[in-house]
């Protein structure tokens, strides 16, 4: 396992370098001169040239890239043009809010998706199985931003039982209030992932319950419940781990849309506001942070997968 972890960590290095290069490139290609944006339309040519020199924008691109990487590693992610403050503490704060949402959505998706997938597989071709599969298809065909609006209309405006935007009510700041604000956005975020997890669990379970060892367990006279819980489930869940990991990535991306719908102060909302205001340091930092966490989530999933299925690490 140690050898596998080392190999996997080493393979991460080129990917992370590539990610930083792509993020740097994306911002280099962005239209507009950062110095002009920072100083405004009335800036003189001399002050613009001075600022470009101070920021190192007059250097060749590779020098700029290595300087930027050097600063990133040291924790200096630049200053936001729009907010006039350090980028890193701001985006870390916003990222924490996004993580609440992502983690809750992942929990909802797994706690509903996995049992639904198992039940569907155990009762293949039953009415409940067919209904579940229709719902699964509906779930991942639904635009996340539209679903968010539907939930706002139903639970927030018609029934009036849940808050429709923000992270906290102005007059309250307890945990219950925070959770009530998280329910609708995390439900919107979880639906697509839940559908895919349910579908994957079902097909993985169907594959496993046709294996010889499951037939052996049945022919020993074990109850169906014991066959499923003790013998089939553990092996059926191994591929589900990968799907769940991939869905966490999907949640990190989908999070941006949900945050806009619910005006939720997470990293997605900050990023979109940054793009619209052409606040390059902020956007660059936000994209880098989300992409790096995605890479790390994928690493964690791969390691977990290798731990659960020894064929991977010896393969």
């Amino acid at each position: 396992m140690t050898g596998y972890i080392v190999r996997r960590l080493l393979s991460l290095i080129p990917v992370l370098i590539g990610v930083t290069f792509l993020v740097f490139l994306v911002m280099q290609l962005a239209p507009g001169d950062p110095a002009q944006i920072m100083l405004g339309p009335k800036a003189t040519e001399t002050s613009l040239a001075q600022l470009r020199h101070d920021l190192g924008l007059d250097q060749p691109w590779h020098v700029q890239y290595f300087r930027w990487i050097g600063r990133v590693v040291q924790g200096n992610w630049g200053r936001s043009i729009q907010l006039k403050r350090e980028v890193l503490p701001f985006i870390l704060d916003r990222f924490r809010n996004s993580l609440y949402l992502t983690v809750l959505a992942a929990l909802i998706a797994c706690t509903i998706g996995i049992p639904v997938g198992i039940l569907s597989a155990v009762r293949q071709y039953s009415v409940s199985d067919r209904a579940t599969m229709v719902l699964v298809l509906v779930g991942f065909s639904m635009p996340i931003f539209w679903l968010g609006i539907m939930l706002q209309i139903l639970f927030g405006l018609k029934l009036g039982i849940l808050p429709v935007s923000g992270l906290q009510s102005p007059e309250r700041s307890d945990v219950l209030d925070l959770i009530s604000h998280l329910i609708l956005p995390s439900m919107a975020l979880a639906t697509g992932a839940m559908a895919i997890i349910a579908r994957m669990t079902r097909s993985s379970m169907l594959e496993v319950i046709r294996q010889d060892y499951v037939r052996t367990a049945r022919s020993k006279g074990l109850s169906e419940r014991l066959v499923i819980n003790r013998h089939a489930l553990k092996n059926a869940l191994i591929p589900v781990v990968t799907v769940v990991g991939m869905q966490v990535g999907y949640l990190l991306g989908g999070d941006v849309l949900v945050e806009i719908v619910f005006s939720y102060p997470g990293i997605g909302l900050a990023m979109i506001n940054g793009i619209l205001a052409r606040d390059f340091p902020l956007v660059q930092g936000a994209i880098l942070l989300v992409a790096s966490s995605y890479v790390l989530v994928n690493l964690a999933v791969d390691l977990l997968y290798a731990y659960l299925d020894p064929r991977i690490r010896y393969g």
Partner: peptide
């Protein structure tokens, strides 16, 4: 290594 929609957002931010 990027969530798909994030990469699309990054590209639009650039273009």
């Amino acid at each position: 290594a990027f969530p798909a929609i994030l990469l699309a957002i990054a590209i639009v931010a650039s273009l």
